[in-house]
Amino acid sequence: MAPAPSYRLLAELEVAFDRLIECSEALLEAYAASPAEAWAFQAEASTEWLRRALLDFWYTDGQDGRATRSHVGLVAADEALMARVAEVNAAKAEFAAQLAHIRDNHPPLLAEAKAVLPFRHPQLHDHLRGSGLARLHLKQCWRAIPVAEAPVARVRLAWYSSGRSIKRLTVREVEKKLLALDSDAPHVRIQLRKLAALPSSEPLAQVQSQAPLMRANLFYCEPLEDGRSRRAMNVALPLFLPAPRGRLPDHNLPPAAPPPSRTRARRSDEKLEEHPYLPSLRIYRYR
Rank of each mutant, 00 (worst) to 15 (best):
P3T: 12
P5K: 03
Y7R: 14
L10E: 07
F17K: 01
D18K: 03
L20Q: 06
I21Y: 09
I21P: 00
C23D: 14
S24A: 09
S24C: 04
L28D: 06
E29L: 11
A30C: 07
A30E: 09
S34V: 00
Q42F: 07
A43M: 05
A43V: 04
E48M: 04
R52Q: 13
D56T: 00
W58V: 05
T60A: 10
D61N: 12
D64N: 12
R66F: 13
R66V: 04
R66I: 05
A67C: 09
R69T: 08
G73T: 08
V75K: 12
A76C: 08
D78S: 04
R84T: 01
N89I: 01
A90T: 08
K92D: 01
K92E: 00
L99C: 10
L99I: 09
L99N: 10
L99V: 06
R103N: 12
D104A: 14
D104W: 00
A111T: 10
A115W: 08
P118Q: 03
D126Q: 14
H127G: 10
H127V: 08
G132L: 02
L138H: 03
L138K: 00
K139E: 15
K139M: 07
W142Y: 14
R143Y: 01
P146I: 08
E149L: 11
R154C: 02
V155E: 00
R156L: 04
L157G: 10
A158R: 15
W159G: 05
R164D: 03
S165K: 08
R168W: 09
R168E: 09
T170G: 11
T170I: 00
R172C: 00
V174A: 13
K177Y: 04
L178G: 01
D182R: 12
H187T: 08
R189S: 04
P199S: 08
S200T: 12
S201K: 08
S201Y: 05
S201V: 05
E202M: 12
L204Q: 12
L204I: 06
L204S: 06
V207F: 12
V207G: 15
P212G: 07
A216S: 06
N217P: 00
F219L: 08
F219T: 10
Y220E: 09
C221D: 15
E222R: 12
P223L: 00
E225W: 06
D226H: 07
G227S: 03
N234R: 12
V235T: 11
A236C: 10
P238C: 02
L241R: 08
L241P: 01
D250A: 15
H251E: 07
A257Q: 15
P259H: 11
R266C: 04
R267Q: 10
E270T: 06
K271C: 02
L272M: 11
E273L: 14
E274R: 13
P276N: 09
Y277L: 15
Y277S: 13
Y277H: 15
L278Y: 14
L278Q: 06
P279E: 13
Y286H: 09
Y286E: 07
